[in-house]
């Protein structure tokens, strides 16, 4: 297990997410694909946190334990924040999909679009 492998996995997940957003007509599937993109980022964040030397440790001869642990966890903290915000994003997205279904009785993007140039 090397950093490169995990990053490739993350890139693949991200690409599948982008493909899903672009190709799918259902808004629910679009939201799921967006979730996949966020999860790809989480995988990359954890991988970088696990495999790379944080800036705080690179130059210090005898690292201060507390500061080191705090900074070494940056990627993990990043991941937790991403998960929390993504959950809020999906909750709002589903609420808007409900509102859309009430007005238009559809959850397909192409049926919902009315505004054109």
């Amino acid at each position: 297990m090397t950093l490169e492998n995990v990053l490739l996995l993350s890139a693949a997940l991200f690409s599948i997410g982008i493909y899903g957003v672009m190709s799918r007509r259902s808004i629910i599937t679009t939201l799921m694909s967006i979730e996949l993109m966020f999860n790809a980022v989480v995988v990359a964040a954890i991988a970088f946190s696990r495999f790379t030397l944080p800036a705080s440790l690179a130059n210090v001869e005898s690292p201060v334990q507390a500061a080191a642990v705090r900074l070494a966890l940056t990627g993990h903290v990043f991941a937790v924040f991403i998960i929390a915000v993504a959950a809020a994003e999906v909750a709002l997205g589903l609420a808007i999909v409900f509102a859309l279904y009430r007005v238009r009785e559809t959850t397909e993007i192409t049926d919902a679009a009315t505004m054109k140039n």
Binding site: V41, P54, L71, G75
Partner: peptide, 17 residues
């Protein structure tokens, strides 16, 4: 999502946010 992917790479290559 694009922004985050970019941020994570900056973090990975510099070790800091």
């Amino acid at each position: 999502a694009l922004l985050l992917y970019g941020m994570v790479y900056i973090y990975g290559f510099t070790g800091s946010t």
